[in-house]
Write a protein that binds this DNA or RNA. Structure first.
Length: 890
RNA sequence: GGGCGAUUGGCGCAGCGGGAGCGCAGGACCCUUACAAGGUCAAGGUCACAGGUUCAAAUCCUGUAUCGCCCACCA
């Protein structure tokens, strides 16, 4: 047997173990008709991405679920892969080209796409390698990519189906345009941010004075858009403007005639109650324009600069144009006043450029018909959110869902499979690439745009099982076996972008079956100051650095300790330090067990405890197994981690191992019995810890003297502890008995500390118990007390006399006297006991009041009343003893 | 304008109807033969505030305050 080092060094074992797991094929998802599958499809990280704390948290959590269920005997598969991330990747490749002084237009579409693939080859596996470093047990033998061949077929299948059913349509609308990415975005890809701005009051002269008025004042935050104004609107009931409705204003600087129209959209209370209408640059104005059949004048180009329709301002960037136009308006006296005005401005979620409402032709998905079944699925519990409150957020969005703009003016992505025949005018969607028109034989032209990345991501839970036809690595029935998946774990910010859409498309294409039963919305990781972790702001922490310092297990467990049902998580590195120390504690507990079991012969059968300490630890273990199993199944990761920590450290290490030390020196039979227990409890504990701390547990487990066949890793060989089978070990008496031993030892240690007596100086103790049974029990555990508290003599009984000049400690059902000839500080003892008395009295009085309350006796649960009664009795006993001791002290 | 979350010892957090807990920091003592990344002992809180429900409230309800998120087309 190889001796373990006194300190656990994660680096020494992590890669070796991970390679072994891979080599043994532990992670491979294999369909097994005899077992119920447990599978998760990983939220595919962007190929451009690298691991951040959110990933670290989310993937640990999924690995915990996967590992636990794998140990529990389920056919398990964690599908891994990456997302092609249209805009993000295109930006990266464009940046790379820019360094060579090139743009994508210089290299051309085909060559550019080729460069994107090259980029993906080169950098796309970074994050996968980082998942491996974390120990994530994904099925790496089958890595997916949202643009691989099989996936492309899935996207085509979906597009053509929806197109043919009329769910995908083309429309000319105001969409969100990013002038930097030069593409349309969907509504939810826009991040709104309140920014300080200005509200400009502009006087638009009337063509002819009306009732003595020469102009109408409009308010706008964006003066540059006046170039696209086609009307001025007021509320139909606004008395101030009744006589102006129908007359004409003249657009300053431009001179265009603007009819003054009436529309309900206008809020008379805001600004002047008169609104300039710019249908091509504002979604509301667009609608007003439609109602009044107004012209749409688009004055911006795709980069957000004023186009040729902007007259003298043509070519100016939108911000320069704003300044120039404002200056000219001011010079000509059109500016009435300017007020500060905070308002929400949309920004591109990829590059944070201000988005521009922009009129253009785009493809849309009609969402209403898809949304209803997805609302029902959550409503009737086929999909459950954890925490449950997220379902309300989901409902709110789904019930107000708007059509989804899916076309992107990019090159990297799934090209829209719509073909046009310029000769005969045919337009159709096709799963196959066609070059000639099936009707007239003329050459076909494919739509230039690509699909929103999220259009392909939404297919993840079934496309990754080879849907629709299966491919080389997938039997066609793979999707039948693995779909629906078991759980989905993700951050809240992609609830709409991704989760909702997966539910909709899953239900639609998988015969009404939901893609997953449980959606776990994990807390968002913030830094200590409560700010978003951000690489660019330098407020982030790199999980790789953390693993370097605390080990993968330390990072994983430290994160799990912090997971609660709360929506924000202020990242605490101290928890990782505690977790690293915890790993070391486990390591050393194992080291102790291994050092003391070299002469031990493994036994397969479960232990039958006779010793109280053994009964106690098995009882505690049985409770722990329940807590951990249930906790993982109900996604209470923080509670599970805390229960494991507490049991391992405070019960197994602090007490059981200490209690075992003496017994290991006992008779051969006694020694064997304790060895059996140490190995059994450690084995079971390691199994429970494994999902959260896979490395340290695997390393130790492999060295434990167990009856085992072959050398397979614990990940697949160690069965998950069975709570039902262990329930027979539950033993409240043993747990109570242990507490009196603990009390006795604590009393001795506390006295020692108070009087500065070295642990090396043996103490004598006299213990008075309330029952003879208790006295017998303590006597039988004399050796334990001697070894843990260094006592040289122990006198125990129900009526033993208090030795003179002794310190007395009072606990539940017993008094401990420690003779300290010549040392006892009477004054200090009196003070301590008085304080103790006060504490006991307060608590006793509280209970007395409670027990004297008719309402309590009548309405509280009988067991609660009984418990309080017993406690009051015990407190009374303790009080009497304290009072007695005080009297003794004089 | 709606919605959600948070407010508990110096710091970070758990508990979410019946005896206020954890980690870190700080104090005293201890290199005790698994572990100083450790052990023992002690100290530290009117659970944001105000009402209410209940025999019983840190825990449930209502409101207030502060902080933070999300959704929303008010120019």
């Amino acid at each position: 047997m190889t001796e373990l080092a006194p300190q656990f060094d994660p680096k020494q074992i992590e890669t070796t173990l991970f390679d072994r797991w891979l080599k043994e094929g532990c992670f491979k998802g294999v369909a097994d008709s005899t077992s119920e599958p447990y599978d998760i499809t990983i939220p595919p990280p962007n190929v451009t991405g690298s691991l951040h704390m959110g990933h670290a948290l989310n993937n640990t959590l999924q690995d915990v679920l996967i590992r636990k269920n794998r140990m529990a005997g389920r056919a398990t598969r964690w599908v891994v892969g990456t997302d092609h991330a249209g805009i993000a990747t295109q930006n990266k490749v464009e940046q790379k080209l820019a360094k060579e002084g090139l743009t994508r237009y210089d290299v051309g579409r085909e060559a550019f796409i080729e460069k994107c693939w090259e980029w993906r080859e080169q950098y796309g596996s970074t994050i996968i390698d980082q998942l491996k470093a974390m120990g994530c047990s994904c099925d790496y033998s089958d890595e997916w990519f949202t643009m691989n061949e099989s996936y492309q077929r899935a996207v085509r299948e979906v597009f053509v189906d929806w197109y043919d059913k009329g769910l995908i349509y083309r429309g000319r609308r105001i969409i969100n345009w990013c002038p930097r990415c030069t593409t349309a975005l969907s509504d939810i890809e826009v991040e709104h941010e309140d920014v300080p701005g200005r509200l400009h009051y502009l006087n638009y002269p009337l063509e002819k004075p009306v009732g003595g008025r020469h102009f109408i004042t409009v308010a706008t935050t964006r003066p540059e858009t006046i170039l696209g104004d086609v009307a001025v609107a007021v509320h139909p009931d606004d008395e101030r403007y009744q006589e102006l409705i129908g007359s004409v204003a003249l657009l300053p600087l431009v001179g265009r005639k603007l009819e003054i129209i009436a529309d309900d959209y206008v809020d008379p209370a805001f600004g002047t109650g008169a609104v300039k209408i710019t249908p091509a640059h504002d979604p509301n104005d667009f609608e007003v324009g439609q109602r009044h059949d107004l012209e749409q004048i688009n004055v911006l180009d795709e980069h957000g600069a004023i186009n040729e329709l902007g007259g003298v301002y043509a070519g100016l960037d939108r911000y320069e144009a704003r300044k120039a136009i404002l200056a000219d308006l001011d010079a000509e006296g059109f500016v009435e006043k300017i007020e500060d005005h905070e308002h929400a401005v949309g920004h591109c979620y990829r590059c944070h450029t201000e988005i521009e409402p922009y009129l253009s032709d785009q493809w849309f998905v009609d969402m209403k018909p898809l949304a209803q079944p997805a609302i029902d699925a959550v409503r009737d519990g086929r999909v459950k959110f954890h925490p449950a409150r997220w379902s309300n957020v989901y409902f709110h969005w789904m019930e107000n869902i708007r059509d989804w703009c899916i076309s992107r003016q990019l090159w990297w992505g799934h090209r829209i499979p719509v073909f046009y025949c310029d000769a005969c005018g045919k337009q159709f969607a096709s799963k196959e690439d066609l070059t000639v028109c099936p009707d007239c034989g003329a050459p076909l032209r494919q739509d230039e745009d690509v699909l929103d990345t999220w259009f392909s991501s939404q297919l993840w839970p079934f496309a990754t099982f080879g849907w629709p036809i299966g491919d080389v690595s997938h039997a066609p029935e793979a999707v039948d076996y693995w779909y629906p998946t078991s759980a989905l774990s993700t951050a809240r910010d992609i609830l709409f972008l991704w989760v909702a859409r997966m539910i909709m498309s899953g239900l639609y294409f998988m015969d009404g079956q939901v893609p997953f039963a449980d959606v776990i919305i994990h807390p968002t990781v913030f830094n200590k100051e409560g700010k978003r972790m951000s690489k660019s702001l330098g407020t982030g922490v790199d999980p790789l650095d953390l693993m370097e310092t605390y080990g993968a297990d330390g990072m994983r467990f430290g994160l799990m300790l912090q997971v609660t049902g709360v929506q924000d998580l202020k990242f605490s590195e101290e928890k990782l330090l505690s977790s690293r120390n915890f790993a070391n504690k486990i390591w050393n507990a194992a080291r102790f067990v291994l050092m003391n079991t070299e002469d031990y012969t493994p036994v397969a059968a479960a232990p039958e405890p006779t010793h109280t300490a053994d009964k106690w630890i098995l009882s505690r273990l049985a409770t722990l197994v329940c807590q951990v199993s249930e906790g993982i199944d109900t996604f209470e990761f923080g509670e599970v981690a805390r229960a494991l920590y507490e049991f391992t450290w405070n019960e197994f290490c602090d007490w059981y191992i200490e209690l075992a030390k003496g017994r290991l020196q006992g008779s051969a039979g006694e020694r064997a019995e304790v060895q059996r227990m140490l190995v059994f409890v450690l084995d079971q504990t390691l199994r429970l810890l494994h999902p959260m701390m896979p490395f340290v547990t695997e390393e130790i487990w492999g060295k434990l003297p167990l009856v085992r066949e072959g050398q397979a890793s614990m990940l697949i060989r160690a069965a998950w502890p069975d709570a039902d089978a262990l329930a027979r070990y539950l033993d409240p008496q043993a747990e109570a008995a242990l507490s009196s031993i603990k009390m006795t030892i604590s009393a001795l240690r506390s006295t020692r500390a108070r009087y500065g007596i070295s642990p090396k100086t043996p103490l004598a103790a006299v213990i008075r118990t309330s029952t003879s049974g208790q006295a017998e029990f303590i006597i039988s555990r004399r050796a334990l007390i001697e070894s843990l508290a260094n006592t040289e003599s122990l006198e125990v009984g129900t009526d033993v006399a208090k030795p003179p000049a002794s310190v007395s400690m009072i606990g539940e059902g017993l008094e401990v006297f420690i003779p300290l000839e010549g040392l006892v500080d009477l004054k200090a003892e009196r003070m301590r006991l008085s304080k103790e008395q006060e504490k006991l009295q307060v608590e006793f009085d509280r209970l007395q009041r409670k027990l004297g309350n008719e309402g309590f006796l009548a309405k509280a649960a009988p067991e609660v009343v009984e418990k309080d009664r017993a406690r009051a009795e015990d407190l009374q006993g303790q009080l009497e003893k304290v009072v007695g001791q005080l009297a003794d002290l004089g």
